[in-house]
Design a protein around this nucleic acid. Structure first.
Length: 585
DNA sequence: GCCGTTTTCGGCCCGACTGTTTTCAGTCG
C-alpha cells in the first residue's frame, strides 16, 4: 500500500474516533501520524524493510505496528472494526457546518440518526430541536448547511476563486478604514483546491470594514458577524471570512490565518521553546500573556516573526509542516520558481484538434503575454472525440506552423511556435505514432486518455513504457485526475517517477486548474531523484494561458526552483535540452 | 497514542463566535 493511502486510513481512524468521543489527544496522535506519513518522501515499504519506521516523528510503538500491518497486509483489522461499528453516513454528517463530533454523536446515540437524510428529516419533524444542546437556530443552520452542501461541494478550483478573491482584496484595499490587507488561508498557500477565502485587514475602525464586507453584492448569506470577524457565503457556494486586527497585530494575524494548522502548531511550539507565546495578535515575551502590546516582540512583517523564531522566511506555499522548519533552520529553503521565470508552455492545443483558436491566434496570444515559445501539441489520431491528428494532418500542421514562425521572424520577433503532439499512450502501452514519426516532432508529450480501468500494475507499466521511449520528452498529466470530479486511475506514481529519472524523461505539472497533475506532494520525491518538471497550460483556448500562473503557484508548493522547471529555459537552451534524451538513449 | 535539557507521568496550540446556557460547551479555523 502506498504512503498516501496509509495516511488516508490513519486520518479516517481519527475521524471515527472523534465521533466515538475518544480522548482528543489520541485522536490527534492519529491525525499527526497521518500527516507525518504524508510527508515521508520515501516509500514506506522500504522504510519498514530497513526497520526505520521509528525514525518518523509521531509514530510510537502502537502506530508503527498498525502502519506495518497496513503496508504489508493492505488493510488493518482495527480500522475495519471501527468502520463496522459506526454507520458510514456519520462521516458525511460531520461535513455539515455546525455539526461537530459531539453533535453527531448526540444525534446518533439519542435519535438513532445514521445519515444526512435522517438528520434532515429530524430537523423537519421537530425531533432535533427537542434534543438537549440543540435549538431552533441550530436546526435552521443545519438545514441550510445540508442544502448548501447538496448544491455546492465544499472545495473549489483555483480558477474559480483566484479572481473572486483578488476582486474582494482590491475592494478592501480601497476602503478608507483599511491600512493593510491580504489574502490568507489555503489560497495564499496555493493549495490545488480551496475550501474558503480568508482575508485579513489592519484597521483602527473595523466596524465599517466588516459592514462593507457583509454588504458585498455577491454575498448570499451572513454566517457570523462580530466586532472583529465576519463570515459570509458568496454566490457559487464559496465561504469567505474576514478578520480585522490592529496594524501592529497584522503580520501575526496574517501568518496565523495563512496556516496551515500544522505549520502554526510548529510555530507556536518554537515560540514556547524560546519562552515566548505566539497567537494571532503577536509574539509575546511571556508564557501567559495573550494580548498586552507592551510585551509584544515588535514585528512589522512576517519576515520579522520568522527571524524572531530563528528561522529563514518561509514562503506561504511551503507552510505545510512538510520539512520547512528543518530547512529554514539551516537557511536551506529553496529559492522558489517565479511566475516571471516562465518562457512558454510545452503542451497546448489549437483548433486543429479540440482547441478553440487558430495557430495564428494562439501565437498572437502567447507572444502578446511575453512568452518566447509555445508548443502546439494537438491530440493524436486515437483521440477521435478530440479530433486527433493522424500523420498526414500533422505533417500539414508543420507547414502551417512554419508559416506562422516565418511571419514572426520577418517581423524581427523572437517568438516561435514549436511542433509537437500530445500522443496517446494506448492500452497496451504502445504509442499512437511510430518512433520514426515521433522523431520528426520537436516536442512529444505522452498521455493516457483511454483505458482508465486497468490495474495499478498495467497503468504504471503503460506510463513507464512511454517514458522508456527515447522520443518522448514529457509524460502528461500522469494520474488523469480531474479535481473535485474524477479520481486518478490506479497508478504507482513513485515507480513512474523512478522510470523518468532513469530515462531522463520530464514530468508535466499540468496547470489546468481541473488537474494540477502531478500532485505537488510528489514533486519533492521527483526532485530528489533528479526528475525535471514542465509546467504546462494544456490550453484549449487563449484564456487558458493564464493557467501558467496558477501552475507556478502549485509548483512553488512542490518546493521547485527555476532550475527544476524546464520551461524557464530560453528557446536556445530548451532546444538543447530537448535533444539530450534522443542523443543519449 | 506520543513524547521527554521538567524523561516513564502528565502534559499535549489557542482564541472568536454562537447558541443555549444562567456560566459555558461546542464548533471552527
Amino acid at each position: 500500500m502506498e504512503n498516501e493511502a496509509v495516511a488516508e486510513i490513519l486520518a479516517e481512524i481519527g475521524v471515527l474516533l472523534e465521533i466515538k468521543g475518544e480522548n482528543p489527544f489520541k485522536i490527534r496522535a492519529y491525525v499527526n501520524a497521518a500527516r507525518a506519513i504524508e510527508n515521508v518522501i520515501e516509500p514506506l515499504e522500504f522504510i519498514i524493510r530497513d526497520n526505520r519506521l521509528g525514525e518518523i516523528k509521531g509514530l510510537g510503538s502502537a502506530l508503527q505496528e498498525k502502519v506495518t500491518t497496513l503496508v504489508t497486509e493492505g488493510s488493518l483489522p482495527y480500522h475495519e472494526e471501527l468502520k463496522a461499528s459506526l454507520p458510514a453516513g456519520l462521516i458525511d454528517m460531520l461535513a455539515i457546518p455546525g455539526m461537530g463530533p459531539k453533535k453527531v454523536k448526540a444525534v446518533y446515540e439519542q435519535l438513532k440518526l445514521e445519515t444526512v437524510e435522517d438528520l434532515e428529516a429530524a430537523c423537519q419533524d421537530g425531533s432535533l430541536e427537542k434534543l438537549s444542546g440543540f435549538g431552533a437556530k441550530t436546526v435552521q443552520r443545519v438545514l441550510e448547511g445540508i442544502a448548501f452542501h447538496r448544491n455546492f461541494g465544499d472545495r473549489h478550483r483555483l480558477d474559480v476563486v483566484y479572481h473572486l478573491a483578488n476582486e474582494i482584496l482590491e475592494g478592501l484595499g480601497r476602503h478608507p478604514n483599511v491600512l493593510r490587507c491580504d489574502i490568507a488561508g489555503s489560497l495564499r498557500r496555493w493549495k490545488e483546491t480551496v475550501g474558503d477565502l480568508d482575508f485579513v485587514v489592519a484597521s483602527r475602525h473595523g466596524g465599517p470594514v466588516l459592514d462593507w464586507f457583509v454588504a458585498q453584492p455577491n454575498v448570499i448569506s451572513v454566517l457570523a458577524k462580530g466586532d472583529t470577524k465576519a463570515s459570509v457565503n458568496l454566490e457559487g457556494g464559496i465561504q469567505a471570512d474576514l478578520r480585522v486586527v490592529s496594524d501592529a497585530e497584522f503580520p501575526f494575524a496574517l501568518a496565523y490565518f495563512t496556516g496551515s494548522k500544522e505549520h502554526n502548531i510548529g510555530m507556536r511550539q518554537r515560540a514556547i521553546e524560546r519562552g515566548l507565546r505566539l497567537n494571532e495578535y503577536g509574539l509575546f515575551r511571556s508564557k501567559t500573556e495573550t494580548r498586552d502590546p507592551e510585551l509584544r516582540v515588535p514585528c512589522k512583517t512576517e519576515f520579522d516573526i520568522f527571524q524572531a523564531l530563528d528561522l529563514q522566511y518561509i514562503p506561504p506555499e511551503l507552510r505545510e509542516d512538510r520539512g520547512e522548519f528543518e530547512a529554514a533552520e539551516k537557511i536551506a529553503l529553496p529559492s522558489l520558481v517565479e511566475w516571471t521565470n516562465m518562457k512558454g508552455s510545452l503542451h497546448n492545443h489549437s483548433d486543429w484538434s479540440d482547441g478553440k483558436q487558430t495557430l495564428e491566434e494562439v501565437a498572437a496570444a502567447a507572444c502578446g503575454l511575453g512568452f518566447s515559445y509555445w508548443a502546439i501539441t494537438d491530440h493524436s489520431k486515437s483521440s477521435f472525440v478530440a479530433n486527433g491528428l493522424d500523420e498526414k494532418r500533422l505533417l500539414k500542421q508543420f507547414v502551417a506552423i512554419e508559416e506562422v514562425n516565418q511571419r514572426y521572424e520577418e517581423a524581427g520577433t523572437r517568438f516561435r511556435l514549436l511542433t509537437g503532439s500530445e500522443v496517446d499512450i494506448l492500452s497496451g502501452g504502445r504509442l499512437d505514432f511510430p518512433d520514426e514519426f515521433l522523431a520528426q516532432l520537436e516536442i512529444v508529450v505522452a498521455s493516457i486518455h483511454q483505458g482508465f480501468a486497468g490495474s495499478e500494475e498495467e497503468m504504471t507499466k503503460r506510463l513507464i513504457q512511454a517514458a522508456e521511449n527515447k522520443y518522448v520528452h514529457i509524460l502528461g498529466h500522469i494520474t488523469g485526475r480531474l479535481l473535485l470530479e474524477r479520481d486518478s486511475y490506479k497508478i504507482n506514481q513513485r515507480a513512474v517517477i523512478d522510470a523518468c529519472a532513469a530515462t531522463g524523461t520530464w514530468i508535466e505539472l499540468n496547470a489546468s486548474p481541473y488537474r494540477m497533475d502531478m500532485d505537488w506532494r510528489l514533486w519533492h520525491y521527483a526532485k530528489d531523484k533528479g526528475v525535471k518538471c514542465v509546467i504546462n497550460t494544456d490550453a484549449h483556448r487563449f484564456e487558458h494561458c493564464s493557467y501558467l500562473r496558477l501552475g507556478v503557484g502549485v509548483a512553488r508548493k512542490g518546493w521547485l526552483t527555476r532550475h527544476d522547471v524546464v520551461n524557464t529555459l530560453t528557446l536556445r537552451q530548451l532546444r538543447k535540452a530537448l535533444d539530450w534524451k534522443r542523443s543519449k538513449l
